[in-house]
Design a binder for these strands. Sequence first.
DNA 1: CTGCCCCTGTAA
DNA 2: TTACAGGGGCAG
Length: 268
Amino acid sequence: MPELPEVEVTCRRLAPQVTGKRIRAAHVLRAGTIAPQTAAGFAQAVSGRTIRAVRRRGKNIILDLSGGYAVRIHLRMTGELFASEIPDITPAVRVWFELGGRRAIVFRDSRALGRISVGLARDVEKQLDALGPEPLSSAFTAARFLEQARASRMPSKLFLMDQTHVVGLGNIYAAESLWRARIDPRKPVLRNSPSKIAELYRAIRDVLRDAIKSVTLEYKRPGKYRETSSFTHGVYGKEGEGCPRCGHRIRRIVQGGRSTYFCPNCQK
DNA sequence: CTGCCCCTGTAA
DNA sequence: TTACAGGGGCAG
């Protein structure tokens, strides 16, 4: 599920339901989900605190708590975070936060790769400062992006995904951004011309904004689950199909151990 | 850079 | 049975 657009929409939908609520208790059903502290230490640290804000930084969800604490949640591959009534404990429920009035926040994660931690807000902030700029904020400028791109020999796709040059892009939206900018994902990023990098900069922002819109619509249908959003993919998952732009067969390769889809004809 | 690991579910 | 999965940390 989660790249920046999905995490953003998760936060937007959670925030109005839990901001201002007090955490009565945290129930950790799988100890490994909490790191680096212990399950008991985590429950102890968050219990009794009030949720002041819900926000996103990259693919992380931050719950700002009273008393100068913050919870950091990373959904990884299959995590989901949502407000609900006291939940049924299905096997994928890893952690849930008991609020007042029979309300709860549930962290469900079938693969159990997601991670939750708590810390002093200033320490959490320090960790987040190590991440690159938010792509839809004013901190992410074309000039900064160009400067970073010209200094890296990484393949263009891995450059987009490593969360230090820009945050929030994962396997799908990195591939889609490159497709829109017509850049070969294997090409060392510094070998792209400045105008190509400028196109990529625009593509990243366009792709993410479009995806947030799609995911927002998707999540609005109550009770309906869908594996993918209505975001129209140009290449992702389309090995062997025709490129929507030029009709050439879309290829699948492996980079950094993960699938990359691209059009070898129009991505140069 | 590649490979391994963390985990589980689902499809080929 | 194997491959693969919208992530990321780490060792070599």
